[in-house]
Design a protein around this nucleic acid. Structure first.
Lengths: 332, 332
DNA sequence: TCGGGCTTGTGAACCGATTCAGTGATGCGT
DNA sequence: ACGCATCACTGAATCGGTTCACAAGCCCGA
């Protein structure tokens, strides 16, 4: 039968000490080596394991980190979440993973629920970095962002992508091969049309003299396929640059539906470098963000902040171009 | 500034009631309509939100469900975890997602940590369903399994796959097309070589007079590719049946490395029906388990059990064959 | 009018830790 | 020998709810 868990009082009784002493001893504080040993032995004997709930109530620390993803339909974000969960577990913390499904309102709700849940910290990949509630949130719990920063809302840490560089890498690659009319698919996000990434696209496009059409698409395969289909119908561009590999998968599907060949009829570029992208045929040429480094940085920053350590740290990730076969010069 | 949260006592004070009354009122118990209204108003006024930690300590319910996956390298299990997380959130619960990375020892450790964390229930996709610790675990927390049952350990619910049917579907399909020498790749799991799925394979293989070679492979792309490469080297089978789509992806990669064409040189079958499988070329023929139904069933079972409701329920999932282009008759 | 049964509501114990202020005892310098 | 730290440990308060046992008020039937 599931006998009740031992409490700290029982351990105290067994050792003839006060509960306070036991509490200290188990955390290696304020007591003599000898008592510590005695307590440890008794605890092991009774199978005592501190109750995390009671501990959380008393100490104010839950050991939990909220992970709020912009959209878990995106396979890359799934990998990110899984990686973070593992990384956190290694630091004796648990990840509470939630999905905003690309909806700013939902993002707001979930962020607040997470705070109400008393997480020690938050890792967020913001859907709407310009929303005003972030500032208040940052004051009640340390927030680490991945991707887009929070515009001075006071995040405890930021892992930012050099999107300028990423966009340049992609567009220059296409430009160098002779592409001129380029379709860009960005994830459905906040209603602010002037997001930095979009700005980079138009700036770079202008610099290179490109003719760019921007559309937004969700990460989900079915939905992305539909949007891509519209882009590929009619007077289509010679190349499509997608702001996530998951969206690029939608372009592959749409191209297949219409009997278009990649890169013969249309070149495709991604942004992420998910492992699956190398498996497609043709392999997806994409911008690689070194997911492992991002995960490690985020975990490190949030742990430090949750422990009350260093704040306001900023880590910049640099992208590299991963050339595969989905891009070629446009048909003459 | 982040002003301190309001407590139940403050709400009590504001309404002139006792904390107990407020506690009842907010949960819609034991009080008059009118008081309830008054309490609600005061709570809203003060921005009161019950502290989940304190509530958990007092009531013994954390609102959290542990989700222990066999291996999150498997994209299908990732989808499963994401789906469960969403489904649980809709029931006002949080999912604590952990990854056993295919290691029985780690599975055991994590399962116990999850229990120590006081989750209200557990959804497990067991790596080693025959391990003995499950029985003890099932007594201290309701456990719902997905995939393999727990051999009478007393799970509160089970969502089982009719693997017999799935294997039959796959092998009969291959057999009908004329395949005889078939390689089978099963996920690296517990050391018990007599797992039900394996038994089904040999039983069906015998029934159909097939020549079957079984090997185990991890879900990760790189590792699976390596194992698949060995299978494809030398005297290779005419078809490979993989017990997860993720492993099949490894076969695709290995085939590409060796310049083998699918299905020309070797046919490939998967088991899962991950969305990506339709995107590969050739599209992966696979056994479809209706992931949505599995997610809903698991969420329903675990919620019911956590609420102290019905136990020992068993839901059986039936597979369907999803034919695409990765299988053809063997070369003469 | 009395007693029984509901309905509302109260007070206090309790969940299981942490932490603060304080108490002897010991060690140390002078 | 005295004052002063330091060390090891204790008692009690605290975190913020839930829940149990009980009480007051009310209605109703006999």
């Amino acid at each position: 039968m599931p006998r009740k868990r031992a409490t700290i009082r029982e351990v105290a009784q067994a050792t003839g000490l006060s509960p306070a002493a036991v509490s200290y001893a188990l955390r290696g504080l304020q007591v003599s080596e000898e008592t510590m040993e005695r307590v440890r032995a008794a605890a092991a004997e009774l199978g005592y394991e501190a109750d995390p709930i009671a501990r959380a109530l008393a100490s104010g620390k839950t050991g939990m980190i909220g992970v709020l993803c912009g959209s878990l339909e995106d396979l890359w974000q799934q990998s990110l979440a899984v990686g973070i969960s593992r990384g956190l577990r290694e630091k004796d913390r648990y990840a509470l993973i939630l999905d905003a499904v690309g909806d700013p309102a939902r993002e707001r709700t979930l962020a607040q629920q997470l705070r109400d849940q008393r997480v020690d910290g938050l890792i967020v990949q913001p859907v709407d970095p310009a929303a005003t509630f972030w500032a208040a949130l940052c004051e009640s719990v340390p927030v680490v962002t991945i991707g887009d920063g929070l515009a001075g809302a006071g995040a405890a840490g930021e892992v930012v992508f050099d999107n300028r560089k990423g966009v340049t890498l992609a567009l220059e690659h296409l430009h160098a091969l002779g592409h001129h009319r380029i379709g860009v698919l960005t994830p459905t996000k906040a209603s602010t049309p002037d997001r930095p990434a979009d700005l980079h696209v138009s700036a770079e496009g202008e610099r290179l003299g490109l003719d760019i059409t921007v559309a937004t698409a969700p990460h989900g395969l079915a939905a992305a396929t539909e949007v891509a289909g519209r882009l590929l119908g009619g007077d289509r561009p010679t190349a499509v640059f997608c702001f996530s590999d998951s969206i690029a998968y939608g372009v592959y599907a749409a191209a297949a539906e219409r009997g278009l060949s990649i890169p013969g009829d249309v070149s495709v570029m991604g942004y992420d470098a998910h492992p699956m992208s190398g498996l497609l045929s043709p392999g997806l040429t994409t911008v690689d963000w070194n997911i492992g480094g991002i995960v490690r940085a985020a975990v490190r920053l949030v742990s430090a902040a949750a422990d009350g350590g260093a704040r306001r740290r900023r880590v910049v990730q640099l992208p590299t171009l991963r050339e595969r076969a989905s891009v070629s010069p446009p048909a003459a």
